[in-house]
Amino acid sequence: MSTTRTIIDTIEDLRSQDSSITVGVSGFGGSGKSTLTRQLTASIEGSARIRGDDFLDPDRSHQRSSDWDGVGRIRLREEVLNPFRQGQPGAFRRFDWGTRQLSAPEAIPTAQVLIVDAIGLFHPDLDGAFDLTIWVDLDLPVATARGKARDHQLGRSHDRLWDEVWVPNERDFFARFNPRPTADCLFVPA
């Protein structure tokens, strides 16, 4: 198991070998992916975050799928990861949850380390896109309880979606793609 410190050290070591590093952080919904990513970007000079929520399709992410079809992995790869890894300027379109459509293009953040956190990230569509992959290793029932509690605190009632769509999607994705053992680092949140 990796600690935040060992992950930072690993990223710094990779950065000493290459000028631009991509890091993928994945795990079950509610596991703490965003929390870890915020900690990493706050601790690593020259890093930036790309939120997986900016690459979700609101309709497809609310439907049953065995591969988290609602995650726009191809768009993430083409608009962000490929240009960043090639050292080329690029632009991406965040999903605007208020208008329920893609926003105007914005520049990829200027950074040496680009950290992406999302569900369903460790998928064949993104093979080879990350220099380091981190699985936030929290059991699905615990992650789900945390995710539901977070939603309730934010005034969102998504219990039905958690129970009928998101948890079954997580189970299917995990059984189909087995992301935990493919990750370079396992991180257990507090």
Rank of each mutant, 00 (worst) to 15 (best):
E170H: 14
R64F: 04
L76Q: 07
D96G: 08
G46R: 10
S16T: 13
P189I: 12
D139N: 07
D151G: 07
V80Y: 06
A145N: 08
R100M: 14
A175T: 12
A91Y: 11
Q88K: 14
I115R: 12
A149P: 03
V165C: 07
V116D: 09
W68N: 13
E106D: 05
E106R: 14
H158V: 13
F28S: 13
D67S: 14
E78T: 08
R93S: 15
I119Q: 11
Q112C: 08
L154Q: 15
Q101E: 15
Q153P: 00
I8L: 06
N82H: 11
W166A: 09
V23L: 06
L161D: 14
A149D: 11
R171K: 14
R38Y: 13
S61G: 01
D13M: 10
E79S: 06
W97G: 02
R180V: 13
R146S: 12
Q88V: 03
D117C: 01
T182Q: 14
S43F: 07
V116Y: 08
D117Q: 08
F130P: 01
A149N: 13
V136Q: 09
Q112D: 15
C185F: 01
R156L: 15
W162V: 15
G98Y: 04
E78K: 11
V23S: 04
R176N: 15
F28W: 10
D159E: 15
K33N: 07
D184K: 01
K148Y: 03
L81C: 02
R38T: 14
A145I: 01
D69K: 10
Q86P: 00
R75A: 12
D159I: 04
D57V: 04
I115A: 11
V25W: 07
F122M: 14
E164P: 10
P179W: 00
E79Y: 05
I50C: 03
R150G: 02
L102N: 07
R51Q: 12
R146L: 13
R100G: 00
G29K: 10
L114Y: 10
D163N: 15
A111S: 11
S2P: 05
F55R: 04
D69P: 00
